[in-house]
Nucleic acid binder design. Sequence first.
DNA 1: ACCGTAATATTACGCCTGTAGTTTATTGCC
DNA 2: GGCAATAAACTACAGGCGTAATATTACGGT
Lengths: 133, 133
Amino acid sequence: MPDTYQLTELQMAIMRVLWDRGQATVAEIHEALKAERGLALTTIATLLSRLEKRGVVAHETRQRQFVYRSLVTEAEVRHSMIHELTERLFDGDLTAMLSHLLSEREISPGDRERIKALLDEKALGKEKSPHAR
Amino acid sequence: MPDTYQLTELQMAIMRVLWDRGQATVAEIHEALKAERGLALTTIATLLSRLEKRGVVAHETRQRQFVYRSLVTEAEVRHSMIHELTERLFDGDLTAMLSHLLSEREISPGDRERIKALLDEKALGKEKSPHAR
DNA sequence: ACCGTAATATTACGCCTGTAGTTTATTGCC
DNA sequence: GGCAATAAACTACAGGCGTAATATTACGGT
């Protein structure tokens, strides 16, 4: 298992199905993605076996069919990809990344409060205040 | 010119030299990157011509040599790449991305204050924070 | 024991990236 | 004016991705 998971758009779409359902067969994933993308079933199968080779998913055979499940959590992938991008763009400086996000976009007042709340929560951090959250 | 610029690590390294200097010859870029990566000069040249084909950089010939310059700003690339990742990971929800960043990492008290200040500034509709770096 | 069907495995191909060797063109110098 | 140096152009190749057609295999039924 590599410790960094860079997934492409299509790979993410497949993983999302797996995360949502816990596990799924090739046919189920194909079905789930049919709406947004008109991909052949074999395409999905190819992608899955490649992901398996990379150690991102695994399968078990259940009556003739492969049942895939993810070996990594969505949080791990997010972490990994954000980390990677922060490295690329800001030399690993998370706060620089944050500043960029904040200064670049409109943040609604509600979101703003939510973010400040998160910050405060983070500040208290260690000692779980009973009011927190 | 595409309106989305996804650059890889090496491409970023090259662009960074261009952004830092305004412009540079192949040899200069090669020299600048020699320390961190032992790449052949022709490798740099190949990358640059591919970037040019994509409309990311341009060159002018000055006494026998190509002088390259970037056609996009670092801010544009950051914007583009962050946008893309936010799309992939959070379906475009910037605030979700922010939350993730906040909840995932240690933020020093100083940074925390800095971020809150940014938020307040944003709240007042004050334009253009002095965005360092 | 066959055969059709369903599921996986194999093969293929174009495009992009990193990587760089080889070839060609130009130019300054003797 | 020819030649060495230099810079760019061309060619190459492996590996990953998206995409999928074709081949193989294993059941389940009659």
